[in-house]
Write a protein that binds this DNA or RNA. Structure first.
Lengths: 354, 354
DNA sequence: CTGAAAGCGCTAACAG
DNA sequence: CTGTTAGCGCTTTCAG
């Protein structure tokens, strides 16, 4: 085994470019492939001199380990997947950023997959899009904003460690990240109640099946009850997470004579923005004649005027926690289940002050 | 080779769970592994009866091909990487969505990596974070919003096909997606000029090194010159892509007596929002006493009041085009270079009308 | 149309 | 500390 200095065994990429393999490095540095492998993976096991020789060969040849071959042995890719209902929007975007940062911190790459993908295609076809996702990742963080048994089943079947965001998984070996919507929603409702009587407090929700939206509505109602008020049907409405829904809701409510002097809690900031705009168009002064509180505390909230009070949801931390738990489980599959509950809190701004 | 119906050769996941291998399927259906492989990859080469038998075995065993082994042979992962300066924000978020949708359409998964990752860690350490990214992906779309030779070099060395977003790569085999900032910026400037004299037109830019921001500024200046005006220094300012920069710029400009009756083109919508808010606080009516145009046409633009005129940049399409070109090149490495230039256009709203 | 056999590039015992 | 050896699970000639 001579210290040949030119790639002998070199292989090639799919596109035809040749790449050095571990064999080439071994040959070039006059050691066995095992030693090269050790230099890379267990440096303590190899003598400094040999290590140095191997390293220069690696450098010279521009050697990059073939991750497929590596993964075939180690059954690890150092890639984690994250599956979200959608990728776009302030909300998911911040979550994704948090996840990406944490993945980076842990030395993992992030494979992103939005569920929106599959919606666009045939809903009924049992698409196997995700098998690919599942196949290569070491673990999967999956956000279930509403019930989705099909997706859940598919994820479980994949066999990789899973972390669930936003829903509680009662299965062994599955960790959960929960958002404590109740705390913030209660705080917000109490804040409204400090200047508005219970019967004038209103909740404008998102999709009725959405976990977050319904938990927020529930907390709103409980708080009203705690204030000796039995909520009436019209005090809670559900539809979607958009400004135009907020706008139309406000118009209609105003027509019914119920908007002036109301205190409105919205299930997200966009809805709140719609309400705010309707108020402006209807000539209602916020906060004097109408108090509005949003949810999520997206950048929007502090950017618009009047500045929107909003319940802060730490989306970045949610994403980070999901990845953190996931990596923990990947590296220690038998650890006991963990549930991280991230709190929310009201950020008071102009739109709700007395 | 009997049709054993229980996994004989079954292997296990990293977490200890056992999984069926192609061998198990072969045994269970009484064929060779080669045939199983053919059923999956070249169905035409195998008789319908055999295929059926194999398929049921696959189904029964819940067999999923091991993508590492597969990749080791095929040198393909069907994963493409996308590397962005940041993940968060309306802008990148929309780009990412477009990329994800296109990847889905093409049957690829999307591995996301923000450059922000590395900034957080030591800037000087020649981090090898990205080797991982590069190692497993079949190709890489990389956005270069400003010069970054180090990253570029690393990407090129990886050997995988590359598509560049926002910068023109003059290297063989590298495709580019360009945003035609000039068209929209010119259109916007002309629009301002229709109601404002050239010396009252102002440009508020983002970071001075940013490609987009400087191209927009350049087009702004050219248009002024085309209108027989020699721009003065104060007519263009650069700093950052934030509302607070827009706000402070507007305050200062007002103090200098140059804001009233001005026509302002901003390098993005957030800056424009800052200008709008300053105008409001300074008691300037928009659009009567001040015209403002943003850039990017993010959701923000149509959400705020007055509604912001803005130059629409089709970020979703940028992301989609990047992935489309990339996949094309992966599947046909020797095709000639392609440059896709996506156009921009002014969307007139309230903030700039006469 | 199907099987046998040869690896892809790497890691991980097991010896020395 | 280092080399030898035996695969990981799959695809792909090459023969039938």
């Amino acid at each position: 085994v001579a210290g040949a200095s030119t790639p002998a065994n070199s292989s090639r990429h799919a596109n035809g470019k040749k790449v050095a393999s571990i064999q080439d490095v071994a040959a070039a540095s006059g050691v066995s492939t095992a030693t090269v492998s050790r230099v890379l993976n267990s440096p303590t096991l190899v003598s400094p001199e040999t290590a140095q020789r191997v390293k220069s060969a690696i450098e010279k040849l521009g050697y990059k380990p073939n991750l497929f071959a590596k993964g075939l042995m180690t059954r690890r890719s150092r890639v984690v997947g994250i599956m979200l209902p959608d990728i776009h929007g302030e909300f998911y975007s911040e979550l994704l950023r948090g996840a990406d940062e944490e993945a980076q911190r842990q030395g993992y790459q992030l494979l992103v997959s939005s569920e929106a993908r599959r919606k666009s295609s045939d809903k009924h076809a049992p698409s196997n899009d995700h098998e690919l996702t599942f196949g290569i990742v070491d673990g999967l963080a999956i956000m279930l904003a509403e019930p989705n048994p099909a997706l859940w089943k598919q994820a479980r079947q994949s066999g990789v460690p899973i972390t669930v965001i936003d829903a509680e998984a009662n299965e062994p070996g599955v960790d959960s990240i929960l958002i404590d919507n109740a705390v913030g929603a209660t705080e917000a409702t109490r804040h409204l109640l400090s200047s508005t009587s219970p019967e004038l407090c209103l909740f404008v929700g998102g999709p009725s099946g959405n976990f977050d939206s319904s938990t927020r509505a529930e907390a709103f109602l409980s708080t009203l009850r705690a204030h000796k008020h039995t909520p009436m049907d019209h005090q809670v409405a559900h539809k979607e997470y958009t400004a135009s829904w907020g706008y139309s809701w406000a118009e209609r409510t105003h027509k019914n004579g119920r908007l002036r002097h109301a205190g409105v809690l919205c299930a997200n900031d966009e809805i709140a923005l719609g309400v705010l705009q309707a108020a402006q168009d209807l000539g209602l002064n916020v906060p004097r004649e109408l108090k509005v509180i949003g949810f999520d505390d997206t950048r929007l909230a502090s950017l618009i005027r009047p500045k929107l009070s909003s319940v802060r949801v730490p989306m970045g931390e949610v994403g980070a926690a999901a990845i953190r738990l996931l990596v923990q489980r990947i590296e220690n599959p038998d650890a006991k289940n963990e549930i991280v509950k991230l709190s929310t809190r009201l950020v008071e701004r102009e739109s709700s002050c007395k």
